[in-house]
Write a protein that binds this DNA or RNA. Sequence first.
DNA 1: TATTGTTATACTCTATAACTATA
DNA 2: TATAGTTATAGAGTATAACAATA
Lengths: 154, 154
Amino acid sequence: MSAMETATKIGHRVTEESSADEAWAELRTLLGHQRRRFLIAASKLDLHPAQAGALLQLASPRPMNELAAVLACDNSNVTGLVDRLEARGLVARRPNPADRRVKRVVLTAAGARTREQLLEIVGRPPSGLERLSRAEQRQLRDLLHRVAAIDPGA
Amino acid sequence: MSAMETATKIGHRVTEESSADEAWAELRTLLGHQRRRFLIAASKLDLHPAQAGALLQLASPRPMNELAAVLACDNSNVTGLVDRLEARGLVARRPNPADRRVKRVVLTAAGARTREQLLEIVGRPPSGLERLSRAEQRQLRDLLHRVAAIDPGA
DNA sequence: TATTGTTATACTCTATAACTATA
DNA sequence: TATAGTTATAGAGTATAACAATA
């Protein structure tokens, strides 16, 4: 099925001006689905959404202030956030000899396991994606990669 | 540039099994960018993220419990959320004559304006999307629509 | 009996400002 | 003087349980 045929079938306008807006609207719909998926996953692991979000950002150790930046919150919030994750044995603070003001946050073994459990839920492609053909999946992957690569900031 | 060439160029594996995972990883990258964009937009309008999320879900009036469902939180949270939005004059509670247990939440004129301001930020396609060709934008739109349509729940 | 919305409680998140240690 | 992290504070979100009104 061609793009034009699909567009007609699902009732989209096919004007030149609106295709980017329409593609973005579809992406935002998926964002909503994924957000709910994330909230449910966090709840299952008895994590506050902010805690689950922090764990996902800790693929490798990060300074506290860098964690604050990626979470789009103030440094002072990260103190409490890390306090509670540390109390549950999921992360630890490590000093940075090069700059003794800095503390890096690292996952413990338990933290890495919890992060994996999160990823098993939010990292699994939704079934709608699985039902595209291999060729379509690759096409989608490459288009999205270009969108994200050109515009990493927003 | 073909999909295969792009995949090689950016270092992707081109195995049959991983294309869905790779597409999903790209999508999650974009969702992360959009999440930060959303948080910044909410902050600019002096809205808590949960309040901004609620406004976005109020394109048309919704019962309180339905709002709780789409926000993936308990009914009791929506009471306080709507209390504060109502105190700011952004929403109002309307009785439902058909079932007097139910209250519908509706946007006020001010609430609709605030919602529009949010959409001006989060609803605008990122520049990376604008730089795809029209044909590629339509292709992306249609692929995403099929992913979202087949799997609306998660 | 079940459901909708509210209240009460306890804990967490979030922004802001002031503070300490380090650069 | 500037930066990284902490502390203190106040307002908001969140889950749970108990409750009133309605179905």
